[in-house]
Amino acid sequence: MSNPDLDRSRPVWRQIASVIVGRIESGEYAPGTRTPSVVEISTEWDVAVSTAQKVLAHLKTTGYVRAEVGIGTFVADEPPESR
């Protein structure tokens, strides 16, 4: 999937989070599957690691993903839209 150009006049982390939520909602990232890591997000979107960390923190706070320390981040079994 090609990435849309990011609008640098808006918070980049929110735009990336929105794309990942779209991938979750479309089933591209199925419940229980691993999401891209901080490094993978940073590389895919050409953003700082701190920006990628903010993306995953937001997705965790909003209930789209769950983190397992030392293992990775996974799509929540019941993402918010299906609760």
Rank of each mutant, 00 (worst) to 15 (best):
R10H: 13
I20F: 04
L56P: 04
G63I: 13
H58R: 15
E25Y: 11
V19P: 00
L56G: 06
V75Q: 12
S82E: 14
P80A: 11
Q15G: 02
S50C: 02
T35D: 00
A30C: 00
E68A: 08
E28A: 13
Y29R: 12
V39W: 02
P4D: 06
I41D: 04
L59F: 11
G27K: 07
T35H: 01
A52Y: 06
Q53A: 00
V19L: 12
Q53D: 01
V39S: 13
I41N: 00
E78Y: 13
A17N: 04
R10N: 11
V75F: 08
P80V: 13
S18I: 01
T51E: 03
H58D: 11
A17D: 02
T51L: 06
P31E: 09
H58G: 03
Y64T: 08
Q15E: 10
A76I: 02
R83N: 14
G32S: 11
A52L: 02
E68I: 11
R83L: 15
R23H: 13
A30S: 03
A48W: 09
P4I: 09
T61K: 15
D5K: 15
L6S: 06
I71L: 09
V49N: 07
G22Q: 08
V65D: 03
D77S: 10
I71D: 01
Q15L: 02
V38A: 01
A52H: 01
V21T: 11
S50I: 05
V75A: 10
P31H: 07
A48L: 09
I71M: 01
P4R: 15
T51D: 03
P31R: 10
A52K: 08
R66C: 09
Q53N: 04
S2H: 12
A57R: 15
E81R: 15
M1D: 03
R14A: 09
A48T: 04
D5P: 04
T43E: 12
T61G: 08
P79S: 09
R83F: 12
R83M: 14
V47T: 02
T73Y: 05
G32A: 08
R10D: 09
L59V: 07
T62Q: 14
A52E: 00
R10Y: 10
D5Y: 07
R14G: 01
V69C: 00
P11K: 12
T43D: 12
W45I: 01
A67W: 03
L59E: 09
P11L: 06
A76R: 13
R10W: 07
A57L: 11
E78H: 13
S26H: 07
I16W: 03
G22A: 11
A67D: 05
W13M: 05
W13S: 14
V38S: 00
P36I: 00
R66P: 00
I71S: 06
S37G: 06
E81A: 12
G22L: 07
E40Y: 04
V49D: 14
V12D: 08
T51N: 05
L59Q: 11
E68D: 06
P80W: 13
V38H: 02
V21G: 03
E40W: 03
P36H: 03
Q15V: 00
V39H: 12
T62G: 04
T62V: 13
V55H: 02
V75C: 07
W45E: 04
D77T: 10
